[in-house]
Design a protein around this nucleic acid. Structure first.
Length: 460
RNA sequence: GGCGCGGUGGCAGAGUGGUCAUGCCGACGACUGCAACUCGUCUUACGCCGGUUCGAUUCCGACCCGCGCCUCCA
């Protein structure tokens, strides 16, 4: 029997069985990056988490309309482009491609829908007009503002009332707002700022507007799952809900709200001021993307995760041991395995318990290492099937251990030549010479492993 | 101030009212010319104080400590 998928819904603050509106087509939207610089490892967490969920949902339902947007209009983009003396379009095109590259390096499948904010101005303007018409928004000093008091249950997702929000307000309130909690739907652009013509003059959208507009266009009025980082619960998702619900006669924007926890670096919150900001690009010069992915999956997605060199070393060693099992079983055919029957699959169905699923990978690797030959194809098949759900172990095991990862590393040809020489020395029982070659290779970062069938090697 | 989260062995990190997470590191044994890999065994746990219970790391309450959000943020 297939496991029920339980997901923790921020809206209800509890795990609930996931039931999509249509069993044949699941709709999921995840907030993507604002493309004004290289993304950091914290930005990669939701991408990896929701990619894993995407894989699981595809397995369960077949079709998943998964959209992850690119925010390519924003004040930070305008500032960065001005600082570089280039157009916002040139800047965002460059960083959008960099984001795609970084995410691909982490084994994330490309989402089937990747909408750009700047391709949806007409939809955003229409949404604003609708909110004005229905009495949920007003124009003030060339801005269009959402009237939070017009919505009875504003604040429901984050669990706060308008009064409570005021108590902690730490930002100066613009004088033209009727209520301090009112947020910008549309704002005016100066001549040098990017802008679009609208009924309220030339301007640009507020932060939250694009998601509401793009969800409606690509996925529908109410979607099954909306995801993102914890910090987006308020105000971003709260305001998306306000915009969409009020424009749609109160219909919900999403049935399930999923939020991932934050990543710390060496126990401290990652921030530019602390200087402990790690970009994916930077980390990829030290570790393969799969190692980063393993490290990101090693903690449950809702918990805080601490990123450190130690964690990455452990992830590397853990992957090495899994690939060692696959390398030893290189000649074993993988028997097709119905993954829904696996304990690893069941773990993922329990609110995406990736640490338990990784544990299952290790159990299967041990099984593959130790079981009788006739049981190996099944063990290998199950191991690979669970790993695929996690986006792991898709490398050729031989390549995993032998590919040179640093400039100036000893070549495979040189290694093979030395191994041949050592083999001859062993034949002649000149063990001193053989050990000397082993040490020479070890100094070059190459470990030799003798077996009945010959000598294999791996880089450390 | 308001809302919320968490404290598990050297490290990372699941989970459970009573037997085992798992991985990394460490120790020992088997295997090996020596190693490595692998397999097996093992050590070190559930913040603190009460309560419920035959039994609590797990449930309840208080306390201590850490963290997040409260209109930049994944």
């Amino acid at each position: 029997m297939e496991s029920v998928l339980q997901l923790y819904n921020t809206a209800s603050r509890s795990k609930q069985p996931f039931v999509p509106q249509s069993a044949e087509r699941v709709t999921m939207y995840v907030c993507g990056p604002t493309v004004y610089n290289r993304v950091h490892i914290g930005n990669a967490r939701p991408a990896v988490i929701f990619d894993t969920l995407y894989r699981l949902l595809k397995q369960r339902h077949g079709r998943v309309d998964y959209a992850r947007n690119i925010t390519d209009i924003d004040d930070k983009i305008i500032q960065a482009a001005a600082a570089n003396n280039e157009s916002t379009a040139a800047l965002t095109a460059r960083y959008t491609q960099a984001y795609f590259d970084d995410m691909a390096a982490l084994n994330n499948l490309p989402p089937p829908i990747v909408p750009l904010a700047t391709d949806h101005l007409a939809e955003m303007i229409a949404l604003v007009a609708q909110l004005i018409d229905s009495g949920h928004a007003y124009v003030a000093q060339s801005h269009v503002l959402f009237d939070v008091e017009s919505m009875a249950n504003y604040g429901a997702l984050s669990g706060r009332s308008l009064d409570e929000m005021l108590a902690g307000a730490r930002v100066e309130v613009a004088s033209y707002k009727r209520h301090p909690g009112d947020f910008v739907l549309w704002k005016p652009s100066s001549a040098e700022q990017p802008g679009w013509q609208s009924p309220w003059g030339r301007g640009r959208p507020g932060w939250h507007l694009e998601c509401s507009a793009m969800i409606e266009k690509h996925l529908g009025t109410t979607i099954d799952i909306h995801g993102g980082g914890q910090d987006l619960i308020f105000p971003h998702h709260e305001n998306e809900i306000a915009q969409s619900c009020c424009a749609h006669g109160g219909q919900p924007l999403a049935n399930f709200w999923l939020h991932n926890g934050f990543i710390n670096i060496d126990g401290e919150k990652m921030s530019k001021s602390l200087g402990n900001f790690k970009t994916v690009e930077e980390l990829l010069t030290l570790y393969r993307g799969e190692v980063l992915r393993y490290a990101l999956l090693a903690a449950h997605y809702r918990s805080e995760a601490n990123f450190s060199g130690d964690l990455l070393e452990q992830a590397q060693s853990s992957l090495d041991s899994l690939y060692t099992a696959l390398r030893s079983a290189a000649d074993v055919p993988a028997q097709p395995f119905a993954v829904a029957a696996s304990a690893g699959y069941a773990a993922l169905c329990d609110d995406l318990n990736t640490p338990a699923a990784l544990g299952e990978l290790h159990r299967l690797a041990r099984l593959l290492n130790s079981c009788a030959d006739d049981a190996k194809p099944a063990a290998k098949g199950e191991l690979l099937a669970v790993a695929e759900l996690l986006g792991l172990l898709d490398c050729d095991p031989e390549q995993w251990f032998t590919a040179a990862r640093f400039e100036g590393a000893i070549s495979a040809e040189q290694i093979e030549a030395l191994i041949a020489e050592r083999g001859a020395a062993k034949q002649a029982r000149e063990f001193a010479r053989a050990d000397q070659i082993r040490q020479q290779l070890l100094d070059a970062g190459v470990v030799l492993e003798d077996s009945r069938t010959g000598t294999s090697w791996r880089r450390e």
